[in-house]
Every structure is written in C-alpha cells, then in structure tokens.
C-alpha cells in the first residue's frame, strides 16, 4: 500500500486510460458473466436468482462411473488432447523456424520478409481458409488423387478431412506464428557472446542448444504456449468446420446455448472454461517466473 502511494502522480495518471479500458471492457463484463451464471432463465428472459442448477447440470452424471463418460468430461478431454497435440507441434515447428530466423538469417530485411511469409495464413477470412482444405484433403481432393494414382492407397482416405487430424492440421497451420513471434523475440535478445563463450569452452551445437539457447528462450516459449493453449481451449470455429461439426468443443456448447438465449447456462460454462484455462496458465507460470525472466 505504501509502495502504491509512492508512485508519482504523473505516472499514476498515465495508467488511467488503460485501467478504465480494463475495468469497463474486461472486469465489469466478466463480473456480470459470473453473476448471471447463478441466474435462472426461461425461453425469452433471464431471471435474477441464486441457483446452482446451471453448474450442477454441467456435471450431471459426471460422477456416475458406471455409465459412459459424461458430455462435459468427454468434451474437455477432447479439448485437452487438441491443446496438447497442437501445443507440441507448434512448439517444435515454431522453435525451429524462430531459430532459423534468429541465427541463420542475418539481414533485418530478410527477417521481415520471412516473417511476413509466416503471416500468410491470416490473409484470408477464417471461413474461406477452412473451405479451401476440401479440395486438398477431401475424398476427391489432391492428396487422395495422389495416393490413389501412385497406388499408395486403394481407396480414398476419409480420415484426412473432418477428423481429429484435420483439426490439428488447421490449428498448427494457423497458430505456429503465435509461437514463432515470442520465441524469436527471446532469441534476438540472447547475447551472441554467450554462445561464443559456450563454443570456446568446447560445447557442441546440440549442447549449446540444450544448455544455453533453450533455457534463455523459456519466457518466449511460455508466452507462446499461453497464446496457443488459450486460443485452442476457446476455439469452436476451427473445430466445428474442420471436424465436420461432429467433434465437440466447449466453445460450440456455449455458442449453441447463447443462440437459444440460455444465457445463464452459457455463462456457467464460460466461467468453468475460464477457470480451467487460468489454472493451466497458472501452472505454466509456476514453472517459469515470466516477470523475473523478462
């Protein structure tokens, strides 16, 4: 408290605009969502109340282990798997792309040009991009044509599209950039002389990578991971379109509830999703203290 008061008034003033934005567009809506998640509702309105029905329904039958796994657990399990697989591939690919950009491309111009190339997936609208996968991966698509004509497969491979595979492919294709940027940023700040010192002390390339570069890139890796995981946790458009609407996502459940004006139920789902996502981020920041590293 004392510390807070010692801040110069001018510095305090500078933080006002952002604080206001934060309060009005983040804190207040979030609080409202939390409050409404305890309200009741009917077909056309929401009714102020304090009930736990919205939450208890989400976990209905979830702790009855004789039956099949409940929808909520199934949905979260599938979302967690997508998160992990997407995180794994974006990390591996993103790390090496960033590595190449930071250590093998020496001119700033080329770094910028190559960076722009990485943003190409974002140049078209979401829907068009998703639809464009059909001619590539579809039953009569390019990949299947190739497999059939070379004799590698004797029937069209249906798992290429509208499957877990196509969802992960679309995620990796899109979100690798979110890994590249923070990792690249961390790498650019590594003092080259540290690498030279390691080299002079007889470390080989692999040892330098493992013992010098990766530890120094941790903040970038964590920030990138937070981006990727939060985006995948809340996604329903990519999972919907690439999964042929047959693979569940929490986002889709919330969306359907909202379109049927079941706002309190949607709010309860959103609160749980938010809590879980924050938990994951909290665990990640426990592993590495981002503030200290920055």
């Amino acid at each position: 408290m004392m510390k807070f008061l010692k801040i110069k008034p001018t510095v305090g003033l500078l933080s006002i605009p952002y604080s206001l934005i934060f309060i009005f567009f983040f804190f207040i809506p979030l609080t409202l969502t939390f409050i409404i998640s305890f309200w009741d509702y009917n077909e056309y309105s929401i009714i102020p109340d304090f009930i736990f029905e919205n939450y208890s329904y989400i976990f209905k039958d979830c702790f009855n282990f004789e039956k099949d796994m409940c929808v909520t657990f199934k949905t979260y399990l599938s979302t967690f798997i997508f998160c992990f697989v997407t995180w794994f591939f974006t990390l591996i690919i993103g790390f090496f792309v960033a590595y190449f950009l930071a250590f093998y491309v020496n001119s700033i111009t080329w770094q910028i040009v190559l960076f722009l190339l990485c943003t190409i997936p974002f140049w078209t609208s979401n829907v068009i991009r998703m639809i464009s996968w059909i001619p590539l991966l579809g039953r009569n698509g390019l990949v299947n044509d190739f497999l059939l004509s070379t004799g590698l497969a004797d029937a069209p491979q249906e798992w290429l599209l509208y499957s877990g595979f196509s969802i992960v492919l679309a995620f990796v294709h899109l979100y690798t950039l979110f890994m590249i940027v923070p990792i690249f940023n961390s790498m650019m700040r590594i003092d080259k002389s540290i690498i030279e010192a390691a080299y002079d002390n007889g470390a080989n390339g692999l040892q330098i990578l493992w013992n010098v570069i990766i530890p120094l890139c941790k903040p970038g890796i964590v920030i990138g991971s937070i981006f990727v995981i939060t985006v995948v946790m809340g996604d329903f458009i990519t999972i919907g379109i690439m999964g042929g609407q047959q693979i569940p996502s929490i986002g889709k459940i919330i969306y359907v509830e909202m379109s049927y004006l079941q706002l309190p139920a949607a709010a309860a789902n959103a609160v749980i999703l938010l809590a879980l996502t924050l938990l994951i981020i909290w665990i990640m920041t426990k592993m590495i203290d981002i503030r200290k590293e920055l």
Binding site: Y57, V71, K74, T75, Q245, Q246, P248, K252, I253, V256, E257, Y260, Q262
Partner: peptide, 11 residues
Amino acid sequence: MVRKWNEMIAS
C-alpha cells in the same frame, strides 16, 4: 432438446 442435441454432437 437443445441439451440432448449437444450430447449427440459430443458423442
């Protein structure tokens, strides 16, 4: 009905 439909999609 909406809840049951969601369950079908999730199955």
